[in-house]
Simulated assay, not measured.
Amino acid sequence: MPASSPAAADGTPWRSASAIVAEAVSGYHVLKVVGYSRTKDVANSKAIKSRPFLAGAANDNVEEAVKASAKFSLLDQDGKLVPSYSFTTLPINFSEKRNWGYSKFIKREVLEKSEHLKDDSFTVRFDVTVMKDIHTQGTPTIVVPPSEMHRHFGDLLLSKEGADVKFRVCKKTFSTHRSVPVARSPLFKKMLLGPMLLGPMKEGTTTSAEVFGALLTFMYTDELPDMKEQEESEMVQHLLVAADRYNLERLKLICEDKLCKHIDTGSAATILALAEKHSCHGLKEACFNFLSASTALKAVMENDGFENLTKNCPSVLKELVSKGISC
């Protein structure tokens, strides 16, 4: 233990503190197996690898000696862990053992009879915790809390205090602060820095009041409002359209990411058409990956959304053919 520091000029003892820290970084990777029936042709001695992924700041494909543990979990159709098929390994030293996991995670016949295999697809999640070196660090005397700006701006939106612009959407009036949408959206900037408004500004699109309210919440807080799980897909589709119109690129990407988790036989055609219309390349590729399953495309073609896709997005059908995706 280090010797104590000398007293300050006024006689008050100097203070210091430290901590011994055994840190770990964690991350997870969600892997969706599309076209499960076709993977049965792979020999038992062969492995099908996922893409490399990150656990915190550490790549799982490391060469140096690293100790880590992993949790392997089957996910249900709502993306939740299935407790009976969720297993955690002991910490493993990579310098001694390069492969580890569960050779008998779930029997094929059990998976095939379960509700977790749908549209010839199922999803698993890998949680990885990488142990870092134990070290000593000083404990700060003053702890600065994380920013609360998003909460303060959210409270400002709810309170309407100081609001100087009103929007009229589907008979509902939203009171806002001109500077916020101006700072967040080029289109709002053009709309609101024009001639002085004499009354509530009308949002002249098919945007619903609920969607416009969610749009304002994001512009004030950089977060989406809470949504009911069963309503999220439809709501996020409308938000993506609004984000594209108002040039809110981060919101658009958030919507793309959320919609990737809602692709199924009932929604794939509609989401693909949406992705094509609004230039959502990542979402479009996710739809193609889903449709590449042996039974997925046939099931999608039986839905009304596919007729709309063929009518309004014929180029997408050509891309499907060029990628070798067919019934």
Rank of each mutant, 00 (worst) to 15 (best):
L272W: 01
L215Y: 04
N247Y: 10
S185I: 13
A209M: 06
A243W: 04
L187Y: 08
L251N: 02
L253Y: 09
R250H: 12
K228C: 05
E249T: 15
K252D: 01
S208T: 15
M235F: 12
I271T: 04
G266Q: 00
R184W: 08
P195N: 12
D222E: 03
P200T: 05
K202Q: 12
T265D: 04
F218D: 04
E229F: 13
D244L: 09
E223T: 13
S185C: 14
M235K: 11
A214Q: 03
D264N: 15
M227N: 07
T265C: 14
T206E: 14
D244A: 13
L272Q: 03
G199R: 13
T217S: 08
L187C: 05
K261D: 14
L239W: 08
K228D: 05
L197T: 12
D257W: 03
K258H: 04
I263Q: 01
D226F: 08
L215I: 10
L192K: 08
L197H: 10
E256P: 04
I254V: 15
K258N: 02
A269Y: 00
T205Y: 05
E249R: 15
L187W: 07
Q230G: 05
F218L: 10
K189F: 06
M196K: 11
K190I: 11
L253K: 13
G199T: 12
A214L: 03
T205D: 11
H262F: 14
T207D: 10
K190P: 00
E203I: 15
Y246T: 10
T217Y: 11
T217Q: 13
V211S: 06
S233K: 14
R245D: 06
L253D: 04
M227I: 07
G266H: 00
D244S: 15
F212G: 11
I254K: 11
L224D: 02
E210F: 04
A269E: 01
D264Q: 11
R245H: 14
R245P: 08
L192N: 05
E231Q: 13
H238E: 14
L215H: 05
P200I: 06
L192M: 10
L216A: 09
F188N: 06
F218M: 06
P186V: 10
K258I: 14
E210P: 03
A209F: 03
M191W: 07
M227H: 06
Y220M: 09
L192S: 07
P225G: 08
L192R: 08
L193E: 14
P186W: 15
N247S: 13
D244I: 11
Q230P: 00
M219Q: 01
N247C: 15
T221S: 01
V236G: 01
L187G: 02
K202M: 09
M219D: 03
A268I: 02
I254R: 12
L272D: 01
K261N: 13
Q230I: 12
G213Y: 04
